[in-house]
Simulated scan of single mutants.
Amino acid sequence: MSSKQDLPPALHDYIQKSGVALAVSTTEGDAPLTAVNGAFCTLTGYTEDEVTGQNCRFLQGPETTEEERQPLHDFVHGKGGDNGRFPILNYRKDGSKFRNFVFMSRLYDSAGQARLILASQFDMTSAMQRSEITKNDARLSQALTDVEQIGREYGYAMMGSAQLIADSVATLARMSFTDPR
């Protein structure tokens, strides 16, 4: 099983410093988390020690639907493209609900094997206004650019993230006009 010690030091350091809620899981077994950052802990209310080694589904709760769960499950288990975006109802440690918009990308080793999944989370509960979407998109865009550069230095690759960002911006903009929450 991978651990945060197995991450390239520059990638681990970047994740820890990022203001975007980031988590890394291995593609092995049940895709346990190997590293999360402070922004993830702030968003969810859990500490890194509480979540390391667990699959992210611990954030799901009684009102999380199977329709929301299945696409995440499929992605984590290697189905579909190299990038995905998934809206899902999640729960913080204190039991409060939040609309999580999860962006995930597979990270490949130098042999072309998917080894890790990088996931960023955005609380879209109150961020449906256009200005919040623009700020989230700018942070995500910068985070993906930085992670891609660090990954290339260590033999990891993220496939197609530029298109993912473009598609995500369009989706978020559409959501801001159709979902008044």
Rank of each mutant, 00 (worst) to 15 (best):
M1V: 00
M1R: 13
M1K: 11
M1H: 06
S3V: 08
P8F: 02
P8Y: 06
L11W: 11
L11R: 03
L11K: 00
H12R: 11
Y14H: 10
I15S: 08
I15M: 01
K17G: 02
K17C: 12
G19S: 09
A23H: 10
S25Q: 08
T26E: 08
T27G: 03
D30W: 15
P32F: 01
P32S: 02
L33G: 12
A35H: 07
N37T: 08
F40T: 10
F40I: 04
F40S: 05
L43F: 09
T44I: 13
T44G: 04
Y46C: 09
T47M: 06
E48N: 03
E48Q: 15
D49C: 09
E50I: 05
E50L: 00
V51H: 04
T52I: 00
G53V: 02
G53Q: 12
G61E: 04
P62A: 13
E63H: 15
T65N: 07
T65E: 14
E66Q: 14
R69G: 05
L72R: 15
D74K: 07
V76M: 13
V76E: 13
V76R: 05
H77S: 14
G78F: 08
G78Q: 03
G84L: 12
R85V: 07
F86N: 04
I88A: 12
L89G: 11
N90L: 11
R92S: 10
K93I: 00
K93W: 14
G95M: 15
G95V: 03
K97P: 02
K97Q: 10
V102P: 02
F103R: 14
S105T: 07
R106F: 14
L107Q: 03
D109Q: 02
S110F: 10
R115S: 00
R115C: 14
R115F: 07
R115L: 10
I117D: 05
I117M: 11
L118V: 04
L118W: 07
A119L: 12
S120W: 03
S120M: 03
Q121M: 08
M124D: 01
T125R: 04
A127H: 00
S131R: 00
E132D: 03
E132G: 11
I133Y: 07
N136I: 13
N136T: 11
D137F: 09
R139S: 02
L140K: 06
S141G: 08
S141W: 00
Q142W: 04
Q142P: 13
A143C: 09
A143Y: 06
A143D: 01
L144R: 05
T145R: 12
V147Q: 15
E148A: 15
E153G: 12
Y156C: 04
M158N: 00
M159P: 02
A162L: 05
A162Y: 10
L164M: 13
L164F: 12
S168T: 05
S168F: 14
R174V: 04
M175Q: 07
S176N: 05
T178M: 04
T178K: 06
D179S: 10
P180N: 00
R181Y: 03
R181I: 15
R181P: 01
